[in-house]
């Protein structure tokens, strides 16, 4: 297999500073598995279909999406030529250093720590805590969008 995993973590500006939180796109150009803002929430599109107001009407796009942070299902119907906002979703992987009082302590690229992400209150959170307690080296993926951040997944750091 390849050389030991070298994780390069690009330096990102904090979400909200500089980069816009969202970007407008024409509804018909959205894709399944892509992202979209519905009712002010950043979502991942799980299903997309077009419908019409009557057989000879103009296409409308029916979107079914899940909130990327809460997993809640949201739906929207929009004319295909209208614009919708797409959230800028940033994913960054951090090695996990510690868990302190319900917060993850993560190592940034420059060696400093990032301590403002909560251990998620779900199965992933439990697994992270268990894995950490067993002394595994974990890499946690933090997803950020529209000013929110969340630990969404993790994996065990590849061994040499």
């Amino acid at each position: 297999m390849s050389a030991p995993e070298e994780e390069h973590h690009e330096e990102f500006e904090a979400v909200g500073a500089g980069a816009s939180e969202t970007y407008p796109i024409q509804c018909s150009a959205l894709r399944k598995n892509g992202h979209v803002v519905i009712k002010g929430r950043p979502c991942k599109i799980v299903d997309m279909s077009t419908s019409k107001t009557g057989k000879h009407g103009h296409a409308k796009v029916h979107l079914v999406a899940t909130d990327i942070f809460t997993g809640k299902k949201l739906e929207d119907l929009s004319p295909s030529t209208h614009n919708m906002n797409v959230p800028n979703v940033i994913r960054i992987e951090y090695p996990l250093l510690d868990i302190d009082d319900g917060f993850l302590s993560l190592m940034k690229e420059d060696g400093s720590t990032k301590d403002d992400i909560k251990v998620p209150d779900n199965e992933i959170g439990q697994q992270i805590e268990e894995g950490f307690a067993e002394g595994k080296e974990l890499i946690v993926t933090i997803v950020a969008a529209m000013g929110e951040e969340h630990a969404l997944s993790f994996k065990e750091a590849p061994k040499n």
Partner: peptide, 15 residues
């Protein structure tokens, strides 16, 4: 680019 590659606009363009 290396800062903005995760922007949805860029991803859209790349895809």
């Amino acid at each position: 680019f290396s800062q903005k590659y995760q922007d949805s606009e860029i991803i859209q363009h790349i895809v």
